[in-house]
Structures are given as structure tokens and as C-alpha cells.
């Protein structure tokens, strides 16, 4: 262990030269390479992230469209169902209405037919009665007396066989 100025000077020179050369041949190239690689890795990571985000976005768009289409179809179907239902109700209503009308008409026809028949019967009956009565009493009564007689007779008839609108 000695202290020699000669060694001191040499070691300063040697180390400074060593440091400058090593900086030139090792640290600067390797550090710039590491930096470049770091930048590149960061860049590609960024690109990957962007691609991922884009994929995410288009997937979301696709799903949105799909959902829309699905709703659309759903709407269509339900609208069709609703209109079919409506048509069905309408048809049924109409049919029942027509049926009712027909029944009503039939009923009216029957009623008027019955009325006519009753009237005819009554007419027949009245004439028959007049005939019979004239035959019985052998007297000729004028038509007006006959009519009054018949009307009295008719009034004595039971209610339901009475004609609705007895003339005079």
C-alpha cells in the first residue's frame, strides 16, 4: 500500500479515457436502443389498445343494430297480431250483428205473418159469424149493424186473439 503520484496521475488519465470510450461504445448505443425499444413497445401497446377499443366500438354498434332489428321484428309481429285480433273481432262482431239482424228480420216476418194470418182469420171469422148469424136470425141487417155487432163480439174475445189495430 503506497501512495505514489505517478499512479494517481495514471489512474485519472486511464479512468477518464475509459469513461469516455465506454460512454461512446457501450452506454450511449445501448441506452438509445433501450429507449427506442421502449418507445416502440409503448407505441405498439398504444396501437393494440386503439385496435381493441375500435373492435369494442364496432361490436357495440353491431349489438345495437341487432337489438334494434330484434325490436323491429318484435314490433312487426305484435302489430300483426294486434291487427289480426282486431280483424277477428270485427268479423265476429259483424257476423253476430248480421245474425242478429237476420233473426230480427225473421222474427218481424213471423210476427207480421202471424198478424196477417190472425187478421185473415178474424175477417173470416167475422164474416162467418155474420153469415151464421144472418142465417140464424133470418133477418138482414145492414152492414153497419153487422159491424157493430162484430166489434162487440171481438171485444168479448180474449185479449191475445184480438187484432192489434182493429179498424173503426
Amino acid at each position: 500500500m503506497e501512495f505514489t503520484t505517478n499512479e494517481l496521475i495514471w489512474s485519472v488519465i486511464n479512468f477518464v479515457v475509459f469513461f469516455l470510450l465506454l460512454r461512446r461504445f457501450l452506454y450511449r448505443p445501448v441506452l438509445s436502443l433501450l429507449d427506442a425499444r421502449k418507445a416502440e413497445v409503448e407505441k405498439s401497446l398504444e396501437a393494440a389498445e386503439r385496435a381493441r377499443q375500435e373492435a369494442e366500438a364496432s361490436r357495440a354498434e353491431y349489438e345495437r343494430r341487432l337489438a334494434e332489428a330484434r325490436t323491429e321484428a318484435q314490433n312487426l309481429v305484435s302489430r300483426a297480431q294486434a291487427s289480426a285480433e282486431k280483424t277477428k273481432t270485427e268479423i265476429l262482431d259483424q257476423a253476430s250483428r248480421q245474425a242478429e239482424e237476420m233473426i230480427e228480420r225473421a222474427r218481424k216476418a213471423i210476427a207480421s205473418e202471424k198478424e196477417r194470418a190472425l187478421n185473415e182469420v178474424r175477417q173470416e171469422l167475422a164474416e162467418l159469424a155474420v153469415l151464421a148469424a144472418s142465417k140464424v136470425i133470418e133477418r138482414s141487417l145492414d152492414v153497419e149493424e153487422h159491424r157493430g155487432l162484430v166489434n162487440d163480439l171481438v171485444k168479448k174475445l180474449p185479449e191475445d186473439t184480438r187484432p192489434a189495430d182493429t179498424p173503426g
Binding site: 499512479e7 461504445f25 436502443l33 425499444r37
Partner: peptide
């Protein structure tokens, strides 16, 4: 300045390290 064993050893060390560094960084690949 006197050249002694200490200097030659220092030079040897410098030479080895610098040659290694030079060989290693001559063709740096990404």
C-alpha cells in the same frame, strides 16, 4: 510518467472491457 505493473493491468482491464463493449454494440439489433 512511469509505466509499472499497475498501469499495464489497468490497460488490460480497459482493453478487455472496451473490446467486449465494442463487439457487443457493433451490430445492435432491435
Amino acid at each position: 510518467l512511469k509505466v509499472t505493473s499497475i498501469q499495464t493491468t489497468m490497460w488490460g482491464i480497459m482493453l478487455v472491457v472496451l473490446v467486449v463493449a465494442w463487439l457487443g454494440t457493433r451490430r445492435l439489433e432491435r
